[in-house]
Design a protein around this nucleic acid. Structure first.
Length: 403
DNA sequence: TTAGGGTTAG
């Protein structure tokens, strides 16, 4: 119990004005809070408040990942190290899966060398090593974009520690080769897996499929799909979405045919699927069909994500429907998923051009509170250029009410 | 609590 208490104290090493929470934060509450918080110190506060509460491990991990990313973006690598180091005192450190999340976190911060060092400290911290931490180490290199190091480590580490790479290890290895644009290596690895009787999963196939489509190798991608089916590997919604990603560059009929196919296979199209369908309609000048996709989204059991709002606002603006885009923008505010600068610039400029000054000012004010510091100057300059910063000192009743 | 698909462009 004493050890446990000291671990809690360690969790709080950053505590300054930590938010006290009386009830556990839900995952969605944590996500919403952290998503809109770009200040690394405030992200840390939220992170600490999660550790205080009895939030689920998943919420904890999400919070840790986002906090680490925010700190890394501000180049506060010493703070990342401090945060991850503090977890070494946690009794759970002897659980390999827990240890592995810390290794992976270093990768998210772009600190693969630290991930490597941490992996080597497992013995002294009393944590057993298996393919789980091995895979976490390889993942740390992939997420920090050090793809060329993965094949080397795959061989060296598995040999040094006597770890047998599993289906996930091979999936990570294949990901690195895909990113390195070495498809021929991928095919030889697939042969090696066959020989070693290591399962090639839908996830592994999806990695390859995505890579081939993105390189424009459509025929090879289709062959991989056929091979997956022949081998009795069942594609899931993500696998279909990769095909739809390619199909959406063409005609809506092709996207609809794939949605029909996946539905018949018992799979549910998700928000990403519908975002592609929406975009495809827009690109083909079928705005009314596109709008219907957005309207029917919830009916289809899906919720708009950040990309849904961004795509909607962008294409409505492109179509000159700035008032409708403004309505969608207000929804994005409610959901705390306001699009980035580029999209918001198009909206504000369009509103001003169409004499919707009141709406433009409202967008300007709301967005100013949402943007991180590094884009605020550009946003303020745009507001000055468009004359939206005027009357700042004496806001109208309406503006005050909507703020 | 060890792998894959969207996203800051369009």
């Amino acid at each position: 119990m004493a050890a446990f208490r000291s671990s809690i104290r360690h969790y709080r090493f950053f505590s300054t004005t930590t938010t006290k929470s009386t009830s556990p934060l839900t995952i969605s509450a944590v996500k919403a809070k952290l998503r809109s918080e770009h200040d690394p110190d405030k992200a840390l506060e939220i992170y600490n408040s999660v550790s205080d509460s009895n939030a689920s491990p998943l919420a904890n991990r999400y919070a840790q990942d986002l906090t680490v990313k925010r700190l890394a973006k501000s180049r506060r690598y010493a703070d990342v190290e401090k945060l991850i180091d503090s977890h070494k005192k946690d009794p759970k450190i002897t659980q390999e899966s827990y240890f592995s999340t810390l290794i992976r976190s270093y990768g998210l911060a772009g600190m693969s060398d630290h991930a490597f060092r941490l992996f080597n400290q497992m013995d002294e911290l009393g944590t057993p090593r298996s393919s789980i931490s091995f895979n976490a180490l390889l993942t740390a290199y992939n997420v920090s974009k050090k793809f060329d190091q993965v094949p080397k480590l795959f061989d060296e580490i598995s040999e040094k520690f006597g770890i047998s790479p599993d289906k996930i290890s091979y999936g990570i290895l294949i990901k690195s080769y895909c990113e390195l644009s070495l498809p021929e290596s991928v095919f030889s690895i697939l042969k090696e897996m066959d020989k070693k009787k290591i399962e090639i999963t839908a996830i592994t196939y999806t990695t390859i499929l995505d890579s081939l489509y993105k390189k424009g190798k459509v025929e090879e991608a289709e062959k991989i799909w056929e091979q997956m089916i022949e081998k009795g590997c069942t594609p899931d919604a993500t696998a279909y979405n990769v095909r739809i990603m390619h199909a959406h560059l063409g005609k809506p009929e092709d996207v609809l045919a794939l949605i029909d196919e996946m539905t018949k296979a018992g799979l549910k199209p998700d928000t990403i699927t519908y975002n592609y369908l929406f975009t495809c309609y827009c690109k083909n000048g079928m705005m009314e069909d596109a709008k219907k996709v957005y309207q029917d989204l919830q009916e289809n059991g899906c919720f708009p994500n950040a990309a849904t709002f961004r795509l909607n606002i962008f294409y409505l603006c492109k179509n000159g429907e700035f008032e409708k885009a403004y309505e969608v923008f207000k929804e994005s505010v409610k959901k705390d998923k306001v699009p980035a600068f580029g999209t918001m610039k198009i909206l504000v400029e369009g509103l001003v051009k169409n004499s919707k000054t009141k709406e433009a000012k409202s967008v300007f004010k709301i967005v100013r509170k949402k943007f991180p510091d590094n884009v605020l100057n550009a946003w303020k300059k745009l507001g000055d250029d468009l004359g939206l910063s005027k009357d700042e000192e004496t806001p109208t009743k309406e503006a005050a009410a909507s703020a």
